[in-house]
Design a protein around this nucleic acid. Structure first.
Lengths: 202, 202
DNA sequence: AGAAAATGTAAGCGGTGCATACATGAGAGG
DNA sequence: CCTCTCATGTATGCACCGCTTACATTTTCT
C-alpha cells in the first residue's frame, strides 16, 4: 500500500470511487465527469487516468459497487421469498433502490457499456445468480431460465418506468403500493388469462 | 412555410430531426450532439438553437417520434392480443424495437428528461393508452391499472436488459425466443406459485 | 546508492452546450 | 414599390469535457 505524501495521494483509486459516488448522490442529473471527480478528490484533472484507463472504466467500477449494494438490498427485503407477496417486496426494494440512487442506477444500466470490466461482469453475474436462486426455490416446477428472466425483467422495467417519471412517484409509499399491485396483478391475472384463452380456443 | 434560399434553409427544424435520426441509426454508441446535427444538416453549429431551445428539446422531439413509431410496431405485431402467445408477440416486438433502434430507444427512456416537452408527454401518454387498452380487453376481470403497468414493465425491463447485454442477443431469433419464453413462463408459472403459497400457508 | 517503476502534474488538442451579438432576407403596412 | 420588422440564419467566445503527451516526484527493487 503506497504512502500518502504532499505529492502522492496514498489511495487515489478509492478516493476517486468515493468522490464519484458523492457526485452521483448530490446531482443525479449531471453526467459523471473525470475532471469533476479529480476536483472532488483534490487532485489534478488527469490524475485519475493513472487508475482508470478511461471514463467508462471508472463508471464500470462504481457500477460494480452498485450491483453489490443492490444485491444486498434485495436480500434485506426478504432472505428467501416464496409467496407472491414476498416476491413483490423484493421488487419494491429493487424499485426503491433505483429511485433512491437514481444516478447510480442509471450508471449501472442506462449507459452503453462494452462490458469489458471484469469487476462489472462479475457483479452482474452475482445479481443474476441471486435472482435465479430465488426463482428456483419459489417455482420448483417451472423453467427456471425463462422465469428468472421474466421476474428480473418485471422489476427492472418497473424501476426504469418509475425513474423516467412514467408513473407517479411522489411518495415512497405510493411507489411501493404501485409496484406491489403490479406484481400481484400479473401473478393473479394469469389464471384468468389462461381461462380466457381456453374459452376462445373452443 | 418559409422559402429556401442560399442563406435560409427552408425547413431546418425537420432537417435537424432527420439528421438526428440518421446519426442515432449510424452510431448508436455516440451521444447525440447539437453540433453534429448542425453539421449533418449543413448549417452553422448554433443554427439548430433557433428551433430547439436546448439539446434536451431536440432529444425530446426525436423521442416523441420514437414513441409513435414504437406504438405502430406494437400494433403491427398484433392488432388485439388476447392470449398469452399473442401478448408475447407484442413483447417481442417491443424488445425488437429496442434492439433495432437502440440509440433511439435510449434517447426515449434512458436519458433523464424533465418531461417539459409537450409533444413528448403526449406521445408517451398515447403508448400508455395503447398498452392499457390491450390489457383491458385481454383481462376483463383484473385491476387494469395495476396490470397494464405490470405488462408494460415486463416488456420494458426485458428490452433494457437485452439492450445492456445482460442476456444473449446474438440473433433476432434467439432474442424473440427468449422474450417469448419469459412472458409465457411468467403467465404459466403463476398458478404454480399460488399453489405453492397455498400449500405453505397450511 | 542508483535504476526502474509507480504515481502524481502541466500543457494542449479537438470536441461539446450554450450565450451573445450580428447578418440576411421574407413578408406586412404604407 | 419601398421600407420596416422579425424570423431565421451566422460568428464569436466561454467554460467544460475526454484524453494524449511530456515531465516531476516518490517508492521500491537490486
Amino acid at each position: 500500500m503506497p504512502q500518502a505524501t504532499a505529492y502522492h495521494h496514498g489511495d487515489l483509486r478509492a478516493a476517486c470511487l468515493r468522490a464519484a459516488r458523492e457526485l452521483l448522490e448530490e446531482d443525479g442529473s449531471a453526467a459523471l465527469s473525470m475532471r469533476a471527480v479529480a476536483r472532488r478528490a483534490g487532485v489534478s484533472p488527469t490524475a485519475p487516468y493513472r487508475h482508470f484507463p478511461d471514463r467508462e472504466a471508472l463508471v464500470s467500477a462504481v457500477a460494480a459497487e452498485g450491483y453489490r449494494e443492490l444485491t444486498e438490498q434485495l436480500a434485506m427485503a426478504h432472505p428467501a421469498p416464496a409467496t407472491p407477496e414476498e416476491l413483490a417486496e423484493v421488487a419494491v426494494a429493487y424499485v426503491r433502490f433505483a429511485l433512491d440512487h437514481s444516478a447510480l442506477f442509471r450508471a449501472m444500466f442506462a449507459e452503453p457499456c462494452d462490458s469489458d470490466s471484469e469487476e462489472r461482469v462479475a457483479a452482474t453475474a452475482a445479481i443474476s445468480e441471486y435472482v435465479r436462486d430465488i426463482v428456483r426455490r419459489a417455482f420448483p416446477g417451472a423453467d427456471p431460465e425463462a422465469l428468472w428472466t421474466a421476474v428480473w425483467g418485471l422489476a427492472h422495467g418497473l424501476a426504469f418506468l418509475h425513474l423516467d417519471g412514467k408513473f407517479d412517484a411522489a411518495t415512497p409509499e405510493a411507489v411501493a403500493g404501485h409496484v406491489r399491485a403490479a406484481v400481484l396483478a400479473l401473478f393473479g391475472a394469469a389464471p384468468a388469462l389462461s381461462r380466457t384463452a381456453a374459452t376462445r380456443s373452443r
